[in-house]
Design a protein around this nucleic acid. Structure first.
Lengths: 198, 198
DNA sequence: TCCGTTTGCCTAAGACCTTTAGGCTGTTGC
DNA sequence: GCAACAGCCTAAAGGTCTTAGGCAAACGGA
């Protein structure tokens, strides 16, 4: 019989898995669905990928890197408010364009994989923005976490339809929230109740 | 044979499903696992629940209501900064105490169910807080969305282990972020570039 | 009290998905 | 040329979801 090899590689699998995730959701990324897409029997994929979790992890790593790449490009040559808005917009548009990959990027990684992944690059980029606001030292980490939380929270709620049933356009809120974050970073408040000197 | 009836009801199922979610994650809440827990064959549960999605939806509704109840109690008698911190803390502690239910609360509901659920009560509570900051009208919705995003984003990242590999205690960042939000709400900025009058 | 109806649980069975074991066949390298 | 390997296959077992159809206990009216 004409047994032409399908030519599956882990890279192709991850690529196709990312596309599949955007179409049917990250939960819909299944070894079986991917085998169908490559017109190959299911067990064949186990030569390229350890198991289903391994596949998903790879997609997560892929999405994190792709997103970090886009963010780095968007930040080049920008500072302060421009940089803040550029970064947020990259995240938000990536999530709209690639909802499955964005969901994949939220998968919890084991510590080793997380350390090797593009995860650290993301916080690095946020730190770079904060330099433009003269935020350094201890305050910096808190601000990084605030920005990350607000970006992720807004995008996550918007994607989950959380704003579908209230009036104003999400775009308008997004812009106002960027304004608010910018104002906050320009006047970052000191701790309200300084720790007591013992 | 001693066919003692197990006495399953939808309410008991949802209750047990919520506990199961906290133990094994919301994704681990499965009709099969629940049947095991009630010592009943799997198909028996289909008399009480339409299908797996129905079960999960009910758990989501349950968690949303439970969380809204706690929030309402915490907000009683508080205003301004106190109220803001109280609400955030309720969310954060609920997520730590009941990670599965918190995850359930993020499930996307169909519009009808969402409207009937406690979802609107949550935004109502945030709006109540904003009254203490004199935030009304158009600004209010944006502030509601900011608070919701930041709370959810921070809790979600913390729960996902996003802060495990950077130094300062998440509690400290949380307090500083509450400070920052409070400061922001006290001095809510006007739009940066007002819309052009055409 | 008796009997029909409803209710709660059961077995059987089909459709998917995951994963392991083991086999066959081109391709590659010595 | 031939051995080893790579890439794909079939077979098979185990888990989950869901529907169909059956049986017996509980309930409710005459």
């Amino acid at each position: 019989m004409d047994v032409a090899r399908a030519g599956v590689t882990p890279e192709l699998l991850v690529q196709a898995g990312a596309e599949l995730a955007d179409e049917v959701g990250f939960d819909g990324v299944t070894v079986s669905a991917l085998a169908r897409r490559f017109d190959v029997k299911v067990p064949s994929l186990y030569s390229h990928v350890r198991n289903s979790g391994d596949l998903k992890t790879r997609i997560t790593v892929y999405a994190l890197a792709e997103l970090a790449d886009r963010a780095a490009v968007a930040l080049a040559g920008r500072a302060g408010r421009d940089a803040l808005i550029a970064l947020g917009t990259v995240y938000r548009e990536y999530a709209r364009e690639h909802p499955g990959r964005y969901a994949a990027a939220r998968l919890r990684l084991d510590p080793q994989t997380a350390a090797i992944s593009a995860g650290p690059r993301h916080s690095q980029l946020i730190r770079a923005i904060l330099l433009g606001y003269r935020l350094e030292g201890a305050d910096q980490v808190h601000a990084v976490r605030l920005i990350g939380s607000t970006f992720h929270g807004y995008i996550s709620l918007e994607l989950a339809g959380g704003f579908d049933h209230s009036d104003p356009d999400p775009q308008e809120s997004w812009e106002r929230i960027m304004d608010a974050l910018d104002a906050l970073l320009r006047h970052w408040p000191a701790p309200s109740a300084p720790e007591v000197a013992s």
